[in-house]
Nucleic acid binder design. Structure first.
Lengths: 203, 203, 203, 203
DNA sequence: CCATAATCGAGACGGTACGTCACGTCTTGAG
DNA sequence: CTCAAGACGTGACGTACCGTCTCGATTATGG
């Protein structure tokens, strides 16, 4: 029989289903950005999410499962730059998007993960596919358009150009630990397009 | 099966002093390249070195101490490219050295460490100084010479150029997981010097 | 083949009310005999009864409640030996009943419980009352009749005799793990009545 | 900030080897008597012994190993009654020893264990051998002597007599929860030797 | 050549965090 | 209204490492 005054405590209702999942995966992304793949532990994620660790283990038995899930649902926000009819603008736009990604918790986490655990095949598969989508699919189309417009030689090594841009962004962000400002991005694009040597064409 | 000769066991004598240190620090570098900073553990280093873990703890109480020591003695092999009187050759030489470093166990370990654990201040201090020496000191001089020769505008953003080259190498090595071939390096240098766009000057 | 008539699935209807209770409490007795008080768990009882654990918790919130209920309804089958006009026969009859109880699932469970968890006050209260009823109420009357008939000295320590018989049965059943045969019971009664020493009177 | 008074703490030295074992196994016996076999947990034993749980697991991986070890070293204090040339005295002495054992922590623990987990073969083997030694080996000899002296018929069922005595003691201790006084023991022995019925021979 | 100190090996122990398990509570939906 | 089904919280357990401590063995060094 219940106490007549049984106003129990007004405890907020348990998180269940979607809300529960949402809260946990958000915590994963935060934790990933904060401490990286290696140091991310399920108990800590659970605590950060205000949830019991057992419940997390039930849904995602391993760290890999958990992170995979977190990255999956966080990748809807991809988006790629649309062509402006000008290669430089397109490249700047693309690089800006990539830079935003690199500086986002999600991007930082994913990249750190890939860099640190490149040896681990699981990690590689996980992050590589994600990065490929982010880095190449959209941009590649822009290059094709630029070649069609005659702004770029047909034999351009697109992969090299993209790698170089991406590498420069990452070097700036992770090694020099500097911000990815618009000015930096424009200078970078100019360098890539025009070259450093004397007989180059300026914008 | 026992050896027919009753040779007692021929146990080699204990490592002491310098030999001991040498063996341990080598193992540290190997371990660093194999599993990275985070997963490197003193007991495992000791076992790989064929040494007792207590002895390692005596000399280097923390993981930081141990790795610092290992990197310190492994950095004598730096060396920088000497000028050839031609910017492109100099850049290729410099990039080749950097690439060798990136692909060496020491470089892989140090870079993975810095990239993955950039959040950790200890790691950052440790590796940043090391990289700065490796990446900039030598190269910078080559650029000054090139400017003096008129191969390069005086307002060239040297830091940007270096960052871009280094970033491209790292992207290739760690993200794309491809080898740093001479061809790749030459293409990279050409891209940086001449630019990607149509009106560029080829080598 | 499906039934042509929309017979929903022939799933047996849910157990409710009395049938539900019956099924659960039976399972409790079985479980009690099988694994004892300590290892008996409500979820397992529920599963054995083919019932949902939540429903069991609703009716009997604690293990004590559940077992108490199970023992209560299982104690109607008590019955005590009726007098035959002869002490030995009466004692054999009484011991036989006690032995049957000891060897029954209910008795095994209850006794194991009392013996093993005598430290637990709940257990003690629960089982002690039950055993007292079983062991003493009926038998005591038989002894009074025997004294009236002059078969027994008036100063006989009835409690001691009963304890000894009961103790011997339990020792045989639980320690020696042997069966409580009629022969054993008769030998036991003879020993108690006539004594072991030389100058005893045989039956 | 460290305390300015660096008085380290005067921590007592670690328990090692024999002292360590001693402390743990003592705690096992206590725990066994306090809560029985089922509820005994290695972590709690470790805490009671003031020792780390991991260290206990290292030496005795399972609860069975631990309890076996504890019982083994606690059985040196067995001792059996020596013959006095009189059957009654011998029996009283033997029963007194048995009673002391039953009331000791060790005996309580072992018996509870056997009673509660009689189904478990491990437990049965463990405790049965121990009890057999305690209950029968010594006593049996006394009966042989009594038969030789003519105090007892040669066809006496020694096992039955011993079981009955032991059973009565256990019933008294565990079911009635009463103390095993000298008076009780003497009354019990008299009952067993002389019988309860009228035509018995008193001591 | 021997004695003594410094160094290293070996193992036991304390300590922390992790992943698992079983239990009991809560919410929701079906009969 | 009762029961089923499942999700979730909660506590304890056993395990895996790591780092510390103690003791014994070996090697280098000074008289």
């Amino acid at each position: 029989m219940k106490s007549p005054i049984g106003r129990k405590k007004a405890k907020e209702p348990r998180l269940r289903g979607t809300q529960f999942i949402r809260k946990v995966l958000d915590a994963v992304i935060e934790q990933l950005a904060a401490v990286g793949f290696e140091r991310l532990s399920i108990p800590e994620v659970a605590e950060r999410a205000g949830v019991n660790k057992t419940s997390v283990y039930r849904r995602w038995p391993t760290k890999g499962d958990l992170i995979r899930a977190a990255l999956d649902i966080s990748m809807g926000s991809a988006g790629s730059a649309s062509s402006t009819g000008n290669l430089r603008s397109d490249l700047v736009g693309t690089a800006r998007l990539a830079a935003d990604f690199v500086e986002s918790p999600l991007g930082t986490g994913a990249l750190r993960m890939l860099l640190a655990e490149g040896a681990n095949p699981d990690v590689r598969n996980l992050a590589a596919s994600m990065l490929r989508r982010q880095e190449t699919e959209g941009p590649r189309a822009l290059f094709d358009l630029a070649m069609a417009r005659g702004e770029l030689p047909r034999d351009t090594d697109v992969q090299l150009v993209l790698s170089t841009v991406a590498g420069a962004l990452m070097h700036r962000a992770f090694i020099e630990q500097g911000p990815l400002t618009d000015a930096f991005i424009e200078d970078l694009v100019d360098l890539i397009l025009s070259g450093a040597s004397r007989n180059r064409s300026r914008r």
